[in-house]
Simulated assay, not measured.
Amino acid sequence: MDEQTTRRGEKQPESPALKTQSPAPTHVLLRYLSGVLFSRVMFSCAILVGLMEILALLEQTTPILQRHLGVSGILTYAGMRLPFLMAGALPLGVLIGALVMLTQMTLASEMAILQASGLSMWGLYKRLIPATLIIGVMGVVLDDQVTPRSEQALAAWWNRTDPHPENGHAFWFHEGGRIGRVQYVADGGNMLSGLDLYTRTPDGLLHKAMHADRADYTHAHGWQLHAISGIQVDGNKPTRLPVENRYRVADNAASVGFHPSFG
């Protein structure tokens, strides 16, 4: 037998090409399916939000232009309104995006290929969990953190840019044993006009009624009431309180039950 002939059963040396070949990447299917679902959901949400933004601007563009806010006012309104619309469109976007993804994969025979390769439906669902969790966290953050702040900022901006806040509607509020009425709000919630405060006893009877022509809020001094008048009831005897030009209610708005900005 020739010496160059390899012996039967002897292990052949690996070729350099096999040594340098990298192993197959892992989690490719996981990244692909989650990425496709996430992109389809975001695309569906973008379309829904765009349609709702157009409808909202059709209603609000005229008032914005009447306030001489121009294009910057329109963009400001659209930007502050965006988180609220996104939070509302996200659940429907998930449904539409998932249907679009599954339909496209079925038409492209990807579902048949995955099933032929041994992937079960449960395995398909497991590979969609990362995208679902990311979308769920986004929805929670939008609803709990972003949307309330943006709506509050939008309400304050809308009130602050109102050239005729006196045309606003009056409203009532209460906190503990106090009841209040405000004729209208101006300066983004930092000025209240026609403020009436009623203090009740633990039995629910009227103890004090106070009226102020105006209330201004500053971070340094809290709420300050101007042109104050009122009465105090002790038993069955009402007593008129002395008129004051200025009165500091509290160092912070929370102690009187209302806040400088509103939503």
Results as ranks from 00 to 15, higher is better:
P165C: 07
P148R: 05
A155C: 07
E166W: 05
R67F: 06
L75S: 12
H211D: 07
R81I: 10
V137E: 04
R127I: 09
T199L: 11
I129W: 08
R149G: 06
L102V: 12
T199Y: 09
V137N: 05
G79M: 09
H211L: 09
L107I: 05
Y184T: 12
L128V: 04
H169M: 08
P165V: 02
L75G: 07
F84Q: 11
G204N: 10
G97A: 11
G73N: 09
Y125R: 11
G176Y: 07
L99Y: 10
G168L: 03
K126I: 11
G73P: 01
P165A: 08
L82D: 07
Y125F: 15
H164C: 03
P148E: 01
T132G: 15
D203P: 05
P91H: 03
I179Q: 08
F173T: 13
E175Q: 13
V185C: 07
A108G: 10
A112M: 04
L195M: 14
A131E: 03
H174F: 06
A108R: 12
Q145R: 11
M80A: 12
G136C: 04
N159L: 10
W158A: 11
E151W: 01
L75W: 05
A212K: 08
M111E: 01
Y125V: 15
M86T: 14
V100F: 14
G93K: 02
P165G: 07
S150F: 04
A112D: 05
F171V: 11
Q66N: 15
N167F: 08
M111L: 07
L128R: 06
Q183D: 14
Q66P: 02
G188H: 11
M121A: 15
T76N: 15
D143N: 08
L197V: 12
A98K: 03
Y184M: 09
P165W: 02
Q66S: 13
R127V: 11
N167C: 05
G188Q: 09
A156K: 07
G168Q: 07
G204C: 06
M210P: 04
L192Q: 05
M138S: 11
L95V: 15
V71H: 09
L99P: 02
V71K: 09
F84G: 12
G139F: 00
G204K: 11
L133P: 02
G93S: 05
K208A: 14
T132A: 15
G180A: 13
L142P: 00
V100Y: 10
A153E: 13
F171S: 10
G88W: 01
V146D: 03
N167L: 13
I129H: 07
L128F: 05
V137F: 14
M210Q: 15
R81V: 09
R178Q: 14
W157A: 13
E151R: 14
Q115K: 08
G118M: 00
F173I: 08
L107S: 10
M111S: 04
L133I: 14
V100I: 15
I96W: 10
H164N: 09
M111F: 01
S117H: 01
L102N: 07
R178A: 14
L82W: 13
G123W: 00
Q115N: 04
L206H: 09
E166I: 03
I113N: 14
D143F: 02
L142Y: 02
V94C: 14
A78F: 03
R181F: 10
L195V: 15
I74G: 09
M210N: 12
D196E: 09
M111Q: 04
I179T: 08
A153H: 12
R160S: 12
G176M: 04
P202M: 10
Q145C: 05
S120L: 00
P148V: 02
L75Y: 09
M105C: 07
